[in-house]
Design a protein around this nucleic acid. Structure first.
Length: 876
RNA sequence: GGGCGCUUAGCUCAGUUGGUUAGAGCGUCUGGUUUACACCCAGAAGGUCAGAGGUUCGACUCCUCUAGCGCCCACCA
């Protein structure tokens, strides 16, 4: 016998072990089944599982389990990401508590510390992924720093270099002075900040800036070609007074200058501004760095050299004021300050020697297209479908505006750039200065044969390696069976917040490296927020710990609460009451099963009873009809990624149809063991992808159950129609009687006499008299075709059946009158709407026949009901 | 500045190509231990679907505009 309430904690871990040990999660590359593949977005190999992971795991596990049961060769490949900067920062923080820096430790010892830290977190993550019930193939688990993934990284790097896509250059980059590293454009975030804005006299013009300390070497003024004010200066060099005396300033006309803004003239600082850098390139101007990579002023700043940039600003402004260069200061200037997405330190644009990927170079292997064009094309051509598709626009916009991607980072933790330099050998030729780009550590310099080689100090952007995730994890560049069978993957499921960081880069890297798309669909889920709609964060302390919720309500409840009532791409709020509601659902399922299994035990059923479709009661027909329409609807929803809908359908079916009606109906003498078994086991299968643990546990308690639910085939629709009409009618009549009882304050325990005039529905009523009597708590049921009004009886009409409760003493006449009047008013309005509709020629002509007929039937029914109600009022 | 989303019952949200007297869960109210379940059962109240126009026989659904909230991108000399 099952426990009275389902206690998730008691079963979940053991069930997971059973699944995992059975090999049910393992995919077979040699299978003949069609593949269905998901590459799990690898959680960072640091810290803990959070709700973002939890919803990802829940959604993906649902898809995988459904397809596995449907007969696909389902591979869900798990792994972790080394998360370069994020991880290095964490370990640096730990070190800081010990009072040491990574420089003090040295590169190798530091990396040792990081590896230690990562190994520990990976264990935590793995266990938490298991806690969520994730049916992923652990035998194929990967880590972005695994040797074979490193091989893939080097392979792609070398190929891109050989194709001229990767180059090294002095270019302007985003620089985080705290991380001492470059950042990609989208790794920069913007926060609103208040600061001072300075108006400075620059010869004949006034320039405005928030960062005067970058202005030491400004020698070019840009004005708009149409600006009349500065027409005479354009193309000329003018001597002006500047910070350290007289300099020559050149005037250039370019549309970049905005006539409306300030004085309409601006000076440019090519080394510390992206726009200015582009202008400098365009006009071949000198790019003079002012600030170094530590955020300190360079010698060009004269007396300020070596000073921190911010400190310099204050002192410089004072000096400018003395020189009469400062015109005014706007103290309330608000602007967007660019900060590092990992540590929130202000980002300094500066010029540095870095590795880049050229996103605009057209290459042969992509049919003369650039990687950017190719990535746009696969989505435009619907080879990749983004769900919801409104994110197409966002994706295209981002791709169209993508600049060359800076991929080198000056941190230690990550894939070392596979480039070597020949250092200091007497025989060195000039050509030795060319970098040696190689898949493997080269033994000697190809030019001078020197063995004194030094590898590039930099590591690669973490998104470079995660961009390869769908194929590097399948053994590429080897032509493995796994790669052939499981790539391209079927769907990438992840949060919309990493559409650019990751999804877009996967498309770029995969189409380039493999000539295949990485995945056929992208399913983007929204962010999980707290009850007030705020983002969950450590500082607010409003985060929900998924592991804690699992302890409290069970994994199934947590999974279901994150999946129902949520549509792709939209954020959702999550809180305990919501999870509790689905805990209640798992308990409902448990108890319904407990009831059914109890009956089996009572009757000594030891194996699955055979379903005899030849001898079914109306109730059996009804529940089978609902079951089979649910199978189709749920399957259709899941195949088309409408996961919430699938969950909702099953919730309603189990609770409303199966428990509230069918189980109650089955408590009578027409109880059909085989139907009970069949419907329950089908429901368990349908629910299994969403709530795997409780369904698996119940499955093992079913008589004759062998094996595991996880490997059961998914239910298929039957080629036979079932008749739901009779019981639809009966439930409607029962509900009407119950309503009348409640309105007349008839005690639930009291049984009452009821008269039914069945009219056309006699047959259905006659067959189900016992059910009516029991579920409506009737003492004496009189059933006739038609009959007289009964004085003092409460009356209603449901589904064409007259319902009369003739016990004068039971019925409160006054209340009954009020109720009827209200109902009559209601009906009158309804009838007016309907007849208005039907008297409209255009409606009758244009609307589909079925719709018109539907409306006519509604009108007829309403009129019948109206008349009965009126008669009844007179009768009281 | 460009783009996107949201606005539906007290709260949180569904609503698939336009045709339901607009749904669910929670909450509220009224009853209730009847062969599983009080993590429950039966019943009820509660909405001019943000506002204004338009298309249509018909709009929560399509179009335009307005308002509020939120997000993304760009810019910020």
């Amino acid at each position: 016998m099952l426990d009275k309430a389902y206690d998730a904690k008691k079963y979940e871990d053991a069930i997971y072990m059973k699944w995992e040990d059975s090999g049910a999660f393992k995919a077979d590359a040699n299978s003949k089944k069609p593949p269905f593949t998901i590459s799990m977005p690898p959680p960072n190999a640091t810290g803990q599982l959070h709700l973002g992971h939890a919803i990802m795991l829940a959604l993906e596990d649902i898809l995988i389990r459904h397809r596995r049961m449907k007969g696909y060769e389902a591979l869900w490949l798990p792994g972790t990401d080394h998360a370069a900067i994020a991880t290095q920062n964490k370990v640096e923080k730990v070190l800081a508590e010990e009072g040491i820096t990574r420089e003090q430790l040295g590169r190798e010892s530091f990396l040792g510390r990081v590896r230690e830290y990562v190994a520990n977190s990976q264990d935590i993550i793995r266990n938490q992924v298991r806690k969520m019930g994730s049916s992923c193939d652990w035998s194929r688990e990967r880590y972005t720093l695994d040797d074979d993934l490193n091989t893939a990284v080097n392979e792609v790097f070398v190929r891109m270099f050989e194709d001229g896509l990767i180059y090294r250059g002095h270019r302007i980059v985003n620089w985080c002075t705290r991380c001492s590293s470059t950042l990609a454009d989208d790794e920069v975030e913007y926060v609103e900040a208040q600061s001072s804005f300075y108006y400075i006299k620059y010869g004949p013009v006034t320039i405005g800036t928030a960062r005067p300390e970058t202005k030491f070497a400004d020698k070019v003024v840009i004005v708009h070609p149409d600006d009349e004010r500065y027409k005479d200066y354009v193309g000329k060099e003018i001597e002006i007074d500047w910070i350290d005396g007289k300099i020559k300033a050149k005037f250039i006309a370019d549309k970049e200058a905005d006539m409306e803004m300030g004085s309409g003239a601006m000076t440019i600082t090519p080394a510390h501004s992206f726009v200015d850098f582009d202008l400098a390139q365009k006009y071949k101007l000198e790019v003079m760095p002012i600030i170094d990579t530590d955020g300190k002023m360079l010698p060009v700043a004269g007396e300020f050299a070596g000073m921190d940039a911010l400190e310099c600003r204050g002192k410089l402004v004072k000096k400018m004021d003395k020189l009469g260069l400062l015109e005014s200061i706007d103290e309330n200037y608000s602007h967007n300050l660019s900060v590092c997405y990992r540590c929130n330190t202000a980002v300094q644009p500066l010029v540095s020697n870095q590795w880049f990927i050229d996103v605009n170079k057209k290459i042969k292997s992509l049919g003369g297209k650039s990687i950017k064009q190719k990535s746009v094309e696969v989505v435009k051509k619907k080879e990749i479908e983004i769900i919801p598709n409104r994110f197409d626009k966002t994706y295209f916009h981002w791709m169209d505006n993508l600049r060359d991607w800076c991929i080198s980072r000056q941190i230690w933790w990550g894939h070392r750039v596979p480039v070597w330099y020949c250092v200091g050998d007497e025989k060195c030729k000039p050509s030795c200065k060319n970098p040696i780009v190689s898949r493997e550590t080269p033994k000697e310099c190809p030019h001078c044969k020197s063995k004194n080689l030094k590898q590039d100090e930099d590591t690669l952007d973490t998104w470079f390696s995660s961009g390869l995730w769908t194929f590097s994890t399948l053994g590429w560049p080897e032509k493995t069976a796994d790669f052939k069978k499981f790539h391209p993957t079927s769907v990438l499921e992840t949060g919309y917040d990493i559409l650019f960081f990751w999804v877009a880069r996967m498309i770029i890297m995969t189409t380039y490296a493999t000539g295949e798309i990485p995945f056929e669909k992208v399913y983007l889920h929204g962010l999980i927020r707290d009850k007030e709609g705020r983002k969950m964060s450590k500082s607010l302390g409003n985060g929900i710990d998924p592991i804690e919720m699992i302890e409290k309500f069970g994994t199934d409840a947590l999974r279901m609460s994150m999946v129902i009532g949520n549509t792709p791409g939209n954020d959702m709020r999550l809180y305990e009451e919501k999870i509790m509601a689905y805990r209640n659902f798992t308990n409902k399922l448990w108890n319904a099963s407990r009831f059914v299994i109890g009956i089996f035990e009572e009757k000594g059923i030891k194996k699955a009873p055979e379903l005899d479709l030849g001898s079914l009661s109306d109730a059996d027909e009804w529940i089978l009809s609902k079951t089979y329409s649910t199978i189709s609807a749920v399957d259709d929803a899941l195949m088309n990624y409408r996961i919430s809908e699938a969950g909702q359908l099953l919730y309603d079916f189990l609770w409303n149809d199966f428990c509230d009606w069918y189980l109650e109906l089955s408590k009578g003498d027409k109880q059909n063991i085989a139907v009970l078994y069949h419907v329950l086991s089908t429901t368990l299968k349908l629910l299994h992808p969403i709530i795997p643990f409780v369904t698996e546990q119940i499955w093992t308690e079913l008589p004759g159950s062998s094996g595991m639910l996880i490997t059961e085939p998914y239910p298929e629709p039957l080629d036979r129609d079932f008749d739901a009409d009779s019981i639809d009618l009966v439930t409607e009549v029962i509900s009407a009687i119950r309503r009348m009882r409640a309105e007349n304050k008839i005690q639930a325990a009291d049984k009452i006499p009821v008269v039914l005039y069945g009219h056309k529905e006699m047959h259905a009523l006659e067959k189900n008299m016992a059910e009516l009597v029991r579920l409506a708590r009737i003492s004496e049921l009189t059933l006739k075709d038609d009959g007289p009004k009964l004085p003092g009886a409460a009356t209603d009409v449901a589904a064409g059946v007259d319902i009369l409760i003739p016990l004068a003493g039971l019925v409160d006449t006054e209340k009954e009158k009020i109720r009827l009047k209200k109902e009559i008013d209601n009906l009158a309005k309804y009838i007016a709407t309907l007849s208005g509709k039907l008297s409209n020629k255009n409606f009758v002509q244009n609307a589909p026949k079925a719709v018109v007929e539907g409306e006519q039937k509604k009108l007829a029914d309403a009129e019948v009901r109206m008349n009965k109600m009126k008669e009844q009022v007179d009768n009281l």
